[in-house]
């Protein structure tokens, strides 16, 4: 009864998405920010799959697969960026990475 209503799946997806957004806006640890982005992508995937079941259409499952591929690409770039910045600054504070946006970066 609960498990086959679309509303419950959307509710779980929205709660997970909100927790991910919360992590992005209120934490400073760069690793936690990255994991929150992953969590948001996963929540969107859950909503995609629920809508695919609702519409009897497999297109949104294909879309979820594309989102997983994008997450994999993002993981590679983001982790190598973190490694480079950690070697230079020896810190995981996201405020330090503000130098990326300044002209006279050290």
């Amino acid at each position: 009864m609960i498990a086959n209503s679309l509303f419950m799946y959307i509710a779980v997806g929205m709660i997970l998405f909100s927790i991910g957004l919360l992590g992005v806006i209120s934490r400073k640890n760069i690793f936690v920010i990255y994991m929150s982005i992953e969590l948001m992508l996963n929540a969107i995937n859950l909503i995609f799959v629920a809508l695919s079941n609702y519409h009897h259409d497999m297109g949104s499952q294909v879309m979820a697969m594309l989102v997983i591929a994008i997450a994999a690409a993002e993981a590679g770039v983001f982790l190598s960026l973190i490694i480079v910045l950690y070697r230079r600054k020896k810190s995981l504070d996201s405020d330090i990475f503000r130098t990326l946006s300044q002209k006279e970066a050290v």
């Binding site: 779980v12 992953e38 799959v49 079941n53 997983i68 982790l79």
Partner: peptide, 29 residues
């Protein structure tokens, strides 16, 4: 979440979620 995908009868995405996310991305992480 992969269990929820299985409940929604998306069996291939269930496998992809476990193999790629839990197996590859988070292990790399």
């Amino acid at each position: 979440l992969s269990g929820l995908f299985a409940l929604l009868s998306a069996s291939f995405l269930f496998m992809v979620q476990i193999i790629i996310y839990a197996g590859a991305i988070l292990t790399l992480f």
